[in-house]
């Protein structure tokens, strides 16, 4: 701008900490989590115990990591239906590297993560370059990876019996807490940093908020979108390794349906399926709410069939509460 008058002494805009919007939703979700924990603790003395709480965390880990990854794609306004089976395929590839090829564990880990990333990259490429709707592109990827997992493994589980260290990856403990729990929370912190502090995170929100405006601002929208899908793939790969380690085997038939639970966790956490809004903290809380509910209901001897019904209702109610709150504004 040419020759700007610096004399203008406008009132210095106060930096307000924006407690609106996302923050209240997170607070709300967090309060619901606390309420649930309180409720189950009062309802059964078996709930609020160290080993049960650890059990909840452990069962959150795999779905939680998938949900972390899904958060990125969902904030762009897209969806990734393939995270569950990409996880399975990544687990199988880890098994192939370690058990079939006999390579050391780190190679297996790299193989699993690369598999996930490649799958995400391909989905992203179809979405961004070929303009295939995310629902379709990732539905295709879901089926392809489901099939490939069976093909590569010969439809049988791959066991890690020759590498006893592998199961330690998820199940080794510090202070009685399994590594998988640390991995989940560690990844959550990392995902939070990526989403809020890095350029890819910023474009992630921008894309979901108004893709055309982002494009007109000179951002290479396509490439960033591909990168975001690839990142979601990386999280699926890590989830696959955790899963395989926990079961000490890569189960090629497992994994379908996990993507929906992951999406449910993301949505309970207040991330908008229409894009532009969302948070990692919300997703973590969402994932915890789901496993607290499942665990608590099981302790109260609610039949598993009814557990599913109740979780389904919670998903819808959580989103409705968000819509109500938004409408009031």
């Amino acid at each position: 701008m040419s020759a700007v008058t610096e004399t203008a002494q406008a009132a210095k805009p106060a930096r307000t900490v924006s407690l609106r919007g996302g923050a209240t939703q997170k607070l709300l979700a967090f309060a619901s989590l606390i309420l649930l924990v309180l409720f189950f603790s009062l309802a059964s003395e078996n709930f609020f115990r160290f080993d049960n709480l650890i059990g909840i965390m452990l069962s959150t880990a795999v779905i939680g990591v998938l949900a972390l990854g899904s958060t990125f794609v969902i904030i762009t306004g897209g969806i990734d239906l393939s995270v569950g089976t990409v996880m399975t395929f990544s687990a199988v590839m880890t098994g192939v590297v370690i058990s079939f090829w006999g390579l050391p564990i780190p190679f297996g880990i790299a193989g699993g993560i690369l598999t996930g990333m490649l799958c995400g990259f391909i989905s992203g490429w179809f979405v961004a370059r070929m303009q295939i709707p995310p629902f379709i592109a990732t539905l295709g990827m879901m089926m392809v990876t489901k099939g490939l997992a069976l093909v590569v493994s010969g439809t049988r589980p791959i066991y890690f019996n020759d590498t006893p260290g592998f199961s330690k990856l998820a199940m080794g403990t510090i202070l009685g807490i399994p590594y998988a729990v640390f991995v989940f929370f560690g990844l959550a912190i990392l995902a939070g940093i990526v989403l809020n502090k890095t350029i890819i995170g910023r474009y992630n929100f921008a894309l979901g908020s108004n893709e055309e405006a982002t494009r007109l601002s000179g951002v290479n929208v396509r490439n960033w979108k591909i990168a975001i899908y690839a990142m979601t793939g990386i999280f699926s790969g890590i989830a696959g390794i955790l899963m395989a380690s926990r079961l000490n085997s890569a189960q090629p038939a497992l994994g379908a349906g996990y993507e929906l639970e992951a999406i449910a966790a993301v949505v309970i956490g207040g991330t908008s399926l229409s894009g532009g809004r969302g948070s990692i903290l919300g997703t973590v809380i969402g994932a915890l709410i789901m496993s607290v509910m499942t665990n608590g209901l099981r302790i109260l001897s609610v039949p598993q069939e009814w557990q599913i019904v109740l979780v389904g209702l919670v998903v819808v109610l959580a989103v409705y509460a968000d819509i109500l709150r938004r409408r009031k504004k």
Binding site: R202, F205, A206, G208, N210, A213, L216, G276
Partner: peptide
């Protein structure tokens, strides 16, 4: 042509 979910400052310097 703005991104409603980003802050004003984030919008200013997008890209």
């Amino acid at each position: 042509n703005l991104m409603p979910d980003l802050t004003a400052a984030q919008n200013l310097f997008i890209g």
